[in-house]
């Protein structure tokens, strides 16, 4: 089954109900380390200003840079790449931070106390049992929907049609081909700090590579795990080269 989450930004009031419900349930990370949070965006100039909030969390990418760079393969797609759920196996995670640097959406954070990477898990343990995510169940205004991917795409596109009919030309369903999380946006994707759709490892990989550079240095200084890091770094460069050539 392919699942998805639909965040309707045109309904989000920025309250943070999703933030606290998620944090209250996944409470093991240290204070201030959140799996989902609110981001505020202001655009335009006074007095023609637009204020928007969106839920900022893992997008659950089909092409997941975090997974590609993870030196210990702790990151996996629960139901295959297009199954919409990217998970960190917390036992395996070594907290190295490679994923932090690699993510094009600036999502994972390192919980310094536990030395683990933290990000939204899509409540995968609930989803595979047929239940919804905690955030979708909590959202008091219906801005977060969870369900089968096809249904949510249909729902999102119908809403896009309505909004466009009402003159909101930039209404768009973001992530249809790329991510497990779909976002209904009402302006250019840059306004929301998103990346261009149709992304590949090549188009987002520069972040991964830069991150790898510093990680490799750190690993080399420590003298442990260098081989692992180096191997993956070489591999990534090779893939990038091939993609670029193709």
């Amino acid at each position: 089954m392919k699942y998805a989450m639909l965040i309707d930004q045109t309904k989000c009031i920025g309250c943070g109900a999703c933030t606290v419900e998620c944090k209250g349930k996944y409470d093991e990370a240290s204070y201030g380390v959140l799996r989902t949070e609110m981001r505020k965006f202001e655009s335009g100039s006074y007095p023609d200003v637009k204020l928007r909030y969106t839920k900022h969390a893992c997008m659950h990418c089909f092409v997941a840079a975090c997974k590609e760079v993870c030196p210990v393969d702790a990151i996996w797609h629960v139901e295959g790449e297009e199954g919409g759920m990217v998970e960190i196996d917390i036992e395996t995670c070594i907290g190295c931070g490679a994923c932090v640097g690699a993510c094009p959406f600036e999502v994972p954070v390192i919980d310094e106390e536990r030395e683990k990477a933290e990000k939204c898990s899509f409540c995968a343990f609930r989803v595979v049992e047929g239940e919804s995510t905690y955030c979708a169940e909590a959202c008091p205004v219906g801005a977060i929907s969870f369900g089968e991917r096809e249904d949510l795409i249909a729902q999102g596109e119908s809403r896009v049609d309505d909004l466009q009919a009402a003159g909101r030309d930039k209404a768009h369903l973001y992530g249809k081909d790329d991510t497990g999380v779909l976002i209904l946006i009402d302006d250019d994707y840059e306004v929301y700090d998103l990346v261009a759709e149709g992304f590949t490892l090549s188009s987002i990989g520069w972040r991964a590579l830069s991150s790898y550079g510093s990680l490799a240095v750190a690993a080399a200084i420590g003298g442990i795990g260098y081989r692992v890091v180096k191997n993956r770094l070489d591999e990534l460069s090779k893939e990038r080269e091939e993609e670029t050539q193709a």
Binding site: I94, G97, A98, I110, S214, A218
Partner: peptide
């Protein structure tokens, strides 16, 4: 952050 975390781990 990545580098710092790596050193911690090491």
């Amino acid at each position: 952050v990545a580098a710092g975390a790596a050193s911690n781990f090491l």
